[in-house]
Design a protein around this nucleic acid. Sequence first.
DNA 1: GCTTGACTTTGACCCTACGTCAAACGGCCA
DNA 2: TGGCCGTTTGACGTAGGGTCAAAGTCAAGC
Lengths: 278, 278
Amino acid sequence: MFRIGEFAQIAQVSGRQLRFYDQLGLLQPAHIDQQTGYRYYTTRQLPRLNRILALKELGLSLEQIGPLLKDEISPTQLRSMLTLKRAQIERSLQEEEARLRHIESRIAQIDKEGKAEDLDVIVKSVPPMPFLSLNCACESMDEVVRMVRTVAAEGSRQIKPGLRDRLMVVARNDVDSEKLDLDIGFSLTRPSNVSVRIAGDLVLRASELSAVETMATIVRPGTNAESHTSFSAVGRWIEANHYEIAGACREVFLEEITGPPGFEGALVEIQFPIRKAA
Amino acid sequence: MFRIGEFAQIAQVSGRQLRFYDQLGLLQPAHIDQQTGYRYYTTRQLPRLNRILALKELGLSLEQIGPLLKDEISPTQLRSMLTLKRAQIERSLQEEEARLRHIESRIAQIDKEGKAEDLDVIVKSVPPMPFLSLNCACESMDEVVRMVRTVAAEGSRQIKPGLRDRLMVVARNDVDSEKLDLDIGFSLTRPSNVSVRIAGDLVLRASELSAVETMATIVRPGTNAESHTSFSAVGRWIEANHYEIAGACREVFLEEITGPPGFEGALVEIQFPIRKAA
DNA sequence: GCTTGACTTTGACCCTACGTCAAACGGCCA
DNA sequence: TGGCCGTTTGACGTAGGGTCAAAGTCAAGC
């Protein structure tokens, strides 16, 4: 019969831990003095405690361990618990590895360039959303800019605020042909079949933007002139983290476009659908 | 100006999270209505929020992230934080990998043998401790048993209880020669220079058992006849978990030896110093 | 027998990074 | 003006204990 301190020393755990396990019913003392409340343990309880510790080492929670201590537990049940846990560990291993690559690429970037530009790339998922857009194949960036401003202006005027959500540009990057093949329009707060006529034969038509589960995004402040740095930041990030581009890039205008041409102040979120590289 | 819900939706975080970051001072709303307490956010705060999320993704705690958001933070400081974190992740990666190997070996064992025997092997570290022992090279297990019982009996009689701790047998496994080269004696609760004479020329002399940082241990109940299964369980465990034996095996008698010869009821902890295999 | 110091008890609060729930109040649309 | 959703603060919960406090116990030395 040992008091809790000595038993704790033998088993290399803390007294607090033993009291905790007692409280959870995982390991009850062999005897409790009714007068003093002192817990007394015997060496016969060491195997049980060690089994608890061993299962804990495997990553199981104390709650999961409880049932596994009963004698009538079958190897099959134990096996299935372990298999479950294995899957969990494999997942978390991959996450940790990703984190590690991630950090290493940041450190390398700091060493190389003196700063970490792509610190602001974050991964998110987007739900499907109704989209009211115009397809246009532009020849130049200037043409894109003019078209976006036109759509923005007409959209703001003709789509009622309760339906209109945010101005977006979606690349139809089938192949990087000479032309910029874009969908320019507004996401909607709810499905709708309206169409909006702009300047003659240009019409915004309803469609749906599909959901994307993993999307590398960056919020870019400032002018178009600097946009390439944001794009390259995302590109580096994607490469450094072993992803690859898996779809059409989107640009979401987070603010209404106001002021002089060029979108100088507008915050834009650039979104790249990605998937883990093979 | 967005209310918290819309801003949360844009940034793909929960409102609770934004309030929490506000409370920590990580991200304060652009404006708070003094009448209603409503928080209002603008797109200008998205970059800061994204930086928080990105750093969190790297595994930094919110507390660590706080200072990194200040503009005057130098890339050097950032680099050192990241390097620190990298080391942490590398450690936890190794632990997870060990856990995974561990689990897989258990699953394999269940599949092969229908049960998991080495579930009770646990790793601990032991501090250095004073030791009062007799070296003896025995020819047979019978001789070992007799000698251990003699030492146990004499030790119990001659070493005062306050000083005497536990009966131990330490293998001097220089090479596995024919003879069993053992130290048999008692660990002591404090350093001492006493020596104890047993039966003529046999004398227990004081020494010190060195500390061992990683020790694979198992508690074996029952008779010597079954001891080999415990040894082999530890052996399999060591192999499956990519360790190797790194020193002399110890056996610690967790109970006083009483009753008829053979240690039938005595619980013994077997300890193997181990190190990670190359 | 008494003192002293080491040990043990219960209880409470702390940690991360929020999720969940409740009661009360604000904003917006028909 | 009612209804409905959104927002506020506050409290409580999570896993696995660590740490601390006040009060009671044990064993050894004198």
